[in-house]
């Protein structure tokens, strides 16, 4: 009996030996050993029963108290989270606001283009940075990526009994920033006419021309992704009929 390893015997009793090893060990047991193992099991059974009998069940009041404390923690956690997330929520709101202000093509960032017809016609002509005839201006427009065709001015003059002259084209630049907008300068019967060709929905929505005096005529045409805004104190029918999208 003493030849057996006590830990082996224990593992056998606890059913922890691999089946092969258990069978091998069992083969070495004599009747005395078997009786002893059975008695050990019985003794432990009695011990465990006694331990169980002497252990009181978890009191209901204790369990209720634990439940209440968990409820309390849950509520505190919720309020803590609510408070701790507030700066994050405020940050998100501010970020969204800034994003909309920067990128939303709405009222968030209107570009104010000053309209000034107080200068005389010679000053008006001098203010044009790229002067040229119709083919030169048309080519400039194409180079700048504006697929807008300016019609035959002579035909237009004849049709409307006005005298239109194309002076030049300038990219719109405000405070050092160039916008997707080009200004075409005309004279019509000796009066200045400015035409803004605005490209893209975003720019169209954000461009403002102000202040537009009461005596300044204004025509707005939307053509295939372009907005053409024509302004002049002079009647505009001759210039407004010049534009077609290509």
């Amino acid at each position: 009996m003493n030849a057996h390893d006590p830990l082996d015997i224990q593992a056998y009793r606890d059913g922890e030996l691999p089946p092969d090893r258990a069978r091998q060990l069992e083969a070495t047991f004599d009747a005395t050993m078997k009786a002893r193992l059975a008695a050990e099991d019985r003794l432990e059974q009695r011990i465990v029963s006694r331990i169980k009998a002497e252990s009181s069940p978890c009191p209901d009041s204790l369990w209720r108290d634990i439940g209440l404390r968990i409820e309390g923690r849950r509520a505190r956690r919720f309020s803590r989270r609510f408070v701790s997330y507030m700066p994050i929520a405020a940050g998100i709101l501010i970020a969204c606001g800034l994003f909309l202000w920067q990128f939303y093509p709405g009222q968030a960032r209107a570009v104010e283009i000053p309209v000034d017809f107080t200068q005389d016609i010679s000053q008006f002509r001098q203010s044009v940075s790229f002067a040229g005839d119709l083919p030169a201006i048309q080519q400039r427009l194409r180079q700048e990526g504006y697929d807008v065709r300016i019609g035959d001015i002579a035909v237009c003059n004849q049709k409307h009994a006005h005298y239109v002259e194309l002076i030049g084209a300038d990219p719109v630049e405000i405070d050092g920033k160039t916008y997707p907008c080009i200004r075409l300068s005309f004279t019509c019967c000796g009066a200045p006419v400015v035409t803004y060709v605005i490209k893209g929905a975003e720019a169209r929505a954000s461009m403002r021309f102000s202040p537009t005096p009461a005596d300044v005529n204004r025509v707005v045409q939307d053509r295939d992704g372009y907005r053409i805004v024509i302004l002049s104190p002079h009647p505009l029918e001759a210039v407004e009929s010049l534009f077609t999208a290509e």
Partner: peptide, 16 residues
């Protein structure tokens, strides 16, 4: 281990 039940009669209350 001779008679675990008889033995436990003497010490049942002392298990804990």
């Amino acid at each position: 281990l001779e008679d675990p039940d008889a033995f436990m009669e003497y010490c049942d209350d002392k298990v804990v």
